[in-house]
């Protein structure tokens, strides 16, 4: 076989191999619906094959053909010019591309009817219809798995893949409240819409300890912060909790409807509130995430709530 042809075949195979590697490392073509992936890969393949084919054709002509034709009268710095006709293939494909262009403009993406937003709406509707139906009734493990999948893309950038808050840069989701957060809320009060309504909690100047009948002291704050952060276990700080916090948050810290949120553990509804309203606390501001579907919220709520129970 001719060396040029062989080289062209090797190049084509190599480039197709690279494309295959790319598709593989992206985790495949993305299911039956994704025309974009398929067309892009097809385009890449066509590009390689056509270029190799055409260039090989001309290199073969360099090797075996000879130049001929009628020379023009002019001559520039010794450069002549043949009066050869257009290469037929080139001319035909040129016309073909013009025909294709007209088709694309009038029928492919019809100028009077196509709208990219319309196309987007259809894409979203089809996507939602497919997955909403499939995941309408999930068991708990599916719910958690789906929640984790949302978490990785939407939440992990701040809370970390381990949901540990990456060294204090965001809340550690494995516990309901860090010591620092409890203190922050007691010092500054709080109003984070965790109950779905605006229900402010007073700061320390409004927090009485029923045991001492006085405002809560620094030492008591330290103690109760440890107690709450520790999951309301042990004895240290328990009495302060009972005297100061239990009235609203309940003796077990699980909160009361319309009065105070659960501070013993995270509940799905609370996570949902944080996602919808955002939250401000000891670390900083967490923005609201309003871009998820109902199913995604449900899954994410369940998953995050499950983290604090582990």
């Amino acid at each position: 076989m001719n060396k040029t042809v062989l080289a062209a075949i090797i190049v084509v195979i190599a480039m197709l191999g690279f494309t295959y590697v790319a598709v593989g490392s992206a985790g495949g073509m993305g299911g039956d619906g994704d025309w974009v992936n398929k067309l892009a890969v097809l385009g890449a393949v066509v590009l390689v094959i056509i270029t190799a084919f055409v260039v090989t054709k001309y290199v073969r002509q360099m090797q075996s053909d000879t130049a001929s034709g009628k020379l023009a009268d002019e001559n520039w710095d010794g450069i002549g010019e043949y009066k050869n006709e257009l290469p037929l293939g080139w001319a035909v494909i040129f016309l073909g591309s013009v025909v294709w262009a007209i088709w694309y403009f009038l029928a492919g993406y019809p100028v009077n009817a196509y709208s990219q937003i319309g196309e987007y709406n259809e894409e979203v509707a089809a996507h939602d219809a497919k997955f909403d139906a499939q995941f309408a009734n999930m068991d708990e493990s599916t719910l958690n798995a789906m929640g984790e999948s949302v978490f990785i893309v939407q939440c992990a950038p701040c809370h970390g893949l381990q949901a540990d808050g990456m060294g204090g840069k965001a809340a550690d989701l494995h516990q309901r409240l860090a010591e620092k957060s409890v203190k922050y809320v007691i010092m500054n009060g709080g109003n984070n819409n965790l109950l779905g309504t605006s229900m402010p909690m007073p700061d320390r100047n409004g927090l009485m300890n029923a045991n001492t009948n006085a405002l809560i002291t620094d030492a008591e704050i330290d103690a109760v912060a440890k107690y709450v952060a520790g999951g309301l276990k042990g004895t240290e700080g328990a009495s302060v909790f009972a005297g100061t916090c239990a009235a609203c948050h309940g003796p077990d810290g699980k909160g009361m409807e319309m009065v105070a949120p659960n501070i013993a553990e995270m509940s799905p509804s609370m996570v949902d509130m944080v996602l919808h309203h955002g939250k401000k606390g000891a670390i900083g501001q967490m923005p609201a995430f309003t871009n998820l579907t109902a199913v995604q919220y449900k899954a994410l709520d369940a998953y995050v709530a499950s983290l604090s129970k582990k």
Binding site: P157, C158, M166, G167, K169, I283, Q285, N291
Partner: peptide, 20 residues
């Protein structure tokens, strides 16, 4: 601005790999 905050940007601009 919808999903990142002042303190996140501060940490991130100082040392991006520590946050991401």
């Amino acid at each position: 601005g919808n999903y990142r905050t002042t303190d996140w940007h501060e940490n991130h601009m100082k040392d991006p790999a520590a946050v991401v």
